[in-house]
Simulated assay, not measured.
Amino acid sequence: MLGAPGGDRDDDGGAQDARGGPADAPSSPRGLVLACADLLHRGDVDGARRVADMLLSGADPRGDAADRLAQHFARVLARRIDDKAGDAPTAGGAAPAPAPSAYLAYNKIAPFLRFAHLTANQAILDAAAIGGARRVHIVDLDAAYGVQWPPLLQAIADGADPAVGPPEVRITGAGPDHDALLRTGDRLRAFSSSINLPFRFRPLLLPCTAQLAADRSIGLELHPDETLAVNCVLFLHKLGGEGEVAKFLRWVKSMNPTVVTIAEREASIGSDCPDELPRRVAAAMDYYSAVFDALEATVPPGSADRLAVENEILAQEIETAVAPGRTGGRARVFEAWATVARAAGLSPRPLSTFAVSQARLLLRLHYPSEGYVVEEARGACFLGWQTRPLMSVSSWQ
């Protein structure tokens, strides 16, 4: 049974204060990270540097999960220490996107992305089937490499009535890298052609995702005879505060979509205390300790795939969650997203029983660890590790 994320956990799973409690022994990796964050927050740069150096001096990519996690946090804090001391320029702008091979490795060794994509895709399929759609338009707010869409396109082609043929599918893929979007479009067009599915792809360059809600001149070429799906998989947390998320969702609602899919991590990182470093670090450590524990339990020691995922994807997520001056990285739990979505005028669209069963089948077939759990609750589908929910997928209209 999955529980609410709540506060931070000690080693026995008990709750504790976000600044760390008795279970966070000063010499433990977690205790040292929290001590470093607290020293830096209080202005003791030299003390923080000594603790960070202590953590990094024994860095071993093949150490246990707690050690590897602490080293990733120590690297982020060390960069903040250098910034504060004036030893390095403050980093600005978006971090480079991880290599496609890292995303493929992530899909192979952990279920998070596939769970989000599969469950969101089923919600889109269900919405299109109910209306007997002949034209489907998907607005993907973070198209990246487009790995979500081939299974959906295949399902649409396989489910088509032979007497009338498959519907036309159009994807508007948004992102900050125009060349990457063009390559994504080329791959999806080639795949659609191979299964005889009418398909179009339009790249939508967005240096800043908030532009969608702020600039009404950004056209999405909407047509009244299309079934419109707006896909927000691991996207909303990239926006700024709650006001910006609300404004964005009101803009989504104004398009009158048939379905809106939202998938996000189940964490409270920076949403209520964006400027208090110790709390941000403690909340992020609580979430990512469960992710690292899951990888530790399911991937062989020394796995090159695990190293790529931790170093290129999870390290960047930790950097975004902890680094100062970032508008994104503000993860929230499902109840917080749901409150903002309802306030924006969206209504819950219950996920089908098949969508939940399919998510459970995904775990049994491809990630057969007893630690992963899928549960339907509060109008959403949750993926967790043991008792800790890690991701939610929900559907709206």
Rank of each mutant, 00 (worst) to 15 (best):
A78Y: 03
D126C: 10
V233D: 12
T119C: 09
L118E: 09
V281N: 04
I156Q: 00
P389S: 08
L181I: 03
G243F: 00
Q211V: 01
R114Y: 00
R50S: 10
L104H: 13
L205E: 11
T320A: 15
A246W: 01
G384M: 06
A99Y: 02
A282I: 06
Y145A: 10
E226Q: 01
G345W: 06
Q154P: 02
A95G: 11
V322H: 01
G379S: 08
L113N: 07
A297G: 15
A214P: 00
S27T: 15
D44G: 09
P278Y: 12
R50W: 11
D305V: 10
I313A: 02
A304E: 12
R388Q: 15
K108C: 07
F201C: 07
M1F: 15
S192W: 05
N231C: 07
F334G: 00
A282F: 06
A95Q: 11
G302S: 11
A37S: 11
A331Y: 10
S192P: 11
A18S: 12
P61A: 12
R364F: 05
Q211P: 00
G345C: 10
L2A: 13
V259Q: 03
C208S: 13
G240A: 15
D293V: 03
V252Y: 01
V260E: 06
S289F: 02
R388T: 09
D46T: 11
A144W: 00
A70P: 04
L188H: 03
G371Y: 04
G328A: 09
V373W: 01
S254D: 15
L55S: 08
A88V: 09
F382A: 11
I269K: 01
D275V: 07
A321G: 09
G185T: 00
A214T: 14
G240W: 00
A18G: 08
V281A: 05
S192Q: 11
I313F: 01
F115W: 03
V252M: 04
